[in-house]
Design a protein around this nucleic acid. Structure first.
Lengths: 161, 161
DNA sequence: GTCAGTGCAAACTTTTTGCAACTAC
DNA sequence: GTAGTTGCAAAAAGTTTGCACTGAC
């Protein structure tokens, strides 16, 4: 593990420790193992994929319910964000990621990232009296290259009928 | 019904007719009743709420499966958009709505709208070669006023322990 | 007349819950 | 020791599917 990565893990573990202590919750091994796993995975993952990763890569068994519970806890702690655009939902770490938004294909439901630095500024306009904004998600829906091509072909076929 | 509203319904019915004909799908009564209902409802609605509205307000019985099927069809036709941020997902008409984005409370999951005219411009930058952008959704997560107050009180309570 | 679309119920997937056992504090 | 947390299995919630019937073309 690189020293930069080691530091990343230390930072998020510290945030979790603080959060647990502030909310009078317990520092269980499960919570820290799951946190480590999440900050080792690059990109998006589902509940199931996280459980598989824990079992196969980290050699750490957890129950499905605990993964659910822990992901919810981490979302409260702002350590993880959830993308509900697909079923099952996909999760992603909230810290140590470059600002980006998501391109979602309305056909195949695939989700890809695109780097972004523009939106953040506009959001400062959000009324802070009636709503305390913490973070935002921008989803751009459309067609990925593959599906756009396939759809074009299907349309041509229909025309010929 | 106002003449503006009547026109709105005619426009979306026409779009649906075109879409169905293009895709060799059938113009069933169900599809048009559901379309009318959607463009009468203001704001967001769930599958269930739509079915209730159809039954109680429109006096038109449809099966749950048909509501699911039809909403999926309307999403393909870009007549409806879906917000998956909550379970069950909420739908909203895609046309005849002012540009807006959504404020989602991470505590109570409530979703409110905020008018917006800024984001659209930035999106023109999305690479059109690899992804054909059609529309976008911006979700701002945070705390609604009610939950922010409640959380603040809870924190104070914890401090006293 | 044909076959896409619908209604209904059953099946399936995903998430939550209840309870006994465990363990952080 | 107490009570929060976990694992497991059962239940609940949400969505899809199979099949017989209906109705658009």
């Amino acid at each position: 593990m690189e020293s930069k990565d080691k530091n990343k893990h230390e930072v998020v573990r510290h945030i979790l420790t603080e959060f647990l202590s502030l909310h009078k919750l317990r520092a269980t091994r499960e919570r820290f193992e799951i946190l480590d796993a999440i900050y080792n995975i690059n990109g998006h993952f589902t509940n199931d994929q996280l459980q598989d990763y824990l079992e196969n890569v980290c050699k750490f068994r957890v129950s499905r319910a605990t993964v659910y519970n822990t992901l919810n806890l981490f979302m409260d702690a702002r350590l993880v964000v959830c993308h509900n655009c697909s079923v099952p939902p996909q999760y992603e770490r909230a810290l140590f990621v470059d600002p980006h938004f998501h391109l979602i294909c309305t056909e195949c439901k695939s989700m890809t990232e695109m780097k972004n630095s523009l939106i953040g500024e506009s959001l400062k306009l959000v009324d802070t009296k009636r709503f305390k904004a913490a973070y935002h998600m921008l989803y751009v829906y459309g067609l990925c290259a593959k599906c756009a091509l396939r759809k074009k072909r299907e349309m041509k076929k229909l025309d010929k009928l």
